[in-house]
Simulated assay, not measured.
Amino acid sequence: MNEMETGRRFLVIILILVAMGAIYFVFVKEPESVSVNSTGEVPNPASLYLSNLKDLEGNPIAMDENKLVFLNIWATWCGPCNMEMPGIQKLYDKYKNHKSVAFYIISDEDAETVNPFIARKGYQLPFYQYAGTYPEALDGNAIPRTYIIHKGKILAEQTGASQWDTPEVVSLIEKNISEI
């Protein structure tokens, strides 16, 4: 076996290991559990509600500060974002007609990228675009990032994929909307 064949075999082995790792993290690894804040306090509660939101047709949208807010920041190219989206859809389906709950699924990608993606996947979620700097309490450079916000407090937050239609999340939402 010459040096070139050895190099190719080594490269194939490395590629197989990388592919196996990617498959593990996308399909096998359990999503992290949601972390629930004990106090949820932030310095300026009003700063949790984003301005400059637009729907995918470009119309300005105001976040409803009087509702329990489920806020997810994602991207079409993000594997963990795609992994958690079916659970978000199930949670949304449960609460989409509830007058005290609002969902905001936010990307900084343009509508020409997002619309074909959601049509292909069949999601029926309220997708929005955001242009601007995130408030400090919602800032981060990782996606997906998800927050459950109520009365100016972050009740739960998660960076990375999670299963959002669990009994624990439903219980958290139910407990807080019963107080509205």
Rank of each mutant, 00 (worst) to 15 (best):
F10M: 10
S33N: 02
P86I: 13
S171V: 13
L125E: 09
T146Y: 03
E84A: 06
E179Q: 15
L15R: 04
V18I: 12
M20P: 01
A142W: 02
M1Q: 04
V42Y: 00
S51T: 02
G58L: 11
Y123H: 04
Q163G: 04
S107G: 05
L125D: 07
G21S: 10
V28K: 01
N52V: 06
S47P: 00
G40Q: 12
F27M: 11
D55I: 09
I149N: 03
Y24N: 09
D165N: 06
T166C: 14
F117S: 06
I143H: 02
L68M: 14
D108G: 00
I148S: 05
N82H: 02
T146Q: 09
W74S: 05
I177Q: 12
G79D: 08
Y92T: 09
W164M: 14
G160P: 03
E136S: 08
A119Y: 01
I106P: 01
S38L: 14
T146K: 07
C81I: 03
I149P: 09
P45S: 13
S35L: 14
V18K: 00
S178T: 07
N59Y: 03
K99R: 13
A22P: 01
V114S: 04
L155T: 07
F70P: 07
E32T: 00
A161S: 10
L125H: 01
I173Y: 10
S33I: 13
P86Q: 13
L53V: 01
G122Q: 12
W77A: 08
Q129G: 03
Q163E: 15
E41G: 01
G58D: 02
D64K: 08
D93H: 06
K121A: 15
P31A: 12
M83E: 05
I23V: 11
M20V: 00
K90Q: 15
R9P: 08
V36N: 07
A62W: 05
A131D: 08
L155K: 07
Y130F: 12
E5Y: 03
P86E: 14
K67Y: 11
P45G: 09
M20S: 08
Y128H: 09
P116I: 14
G7A: 09
F27Q: 10
P31Q: 08
V101R: 02
L50W: 01
V26G: 06
Q163T: 08
Y123W: 15
S178F: 13
T76F: 12
L48T: 06
D108V: 01
S35I: 11
G122E: 14
A102C: 12
W164P: 13
F25N: 02
S178D: 13
L125R: 08
M83P: 06
Y92S: 12
A119C: 10
E109L: 04
A156G: 06
L172E: 11
M4W: 04
N59C: 07
K67A: 15
K121E: 15
E84K: 09
I13L: 13
Y123M: 15
G58M: 04
V69N: 04
K54F: 03
Q129K: 06
D55G: 08
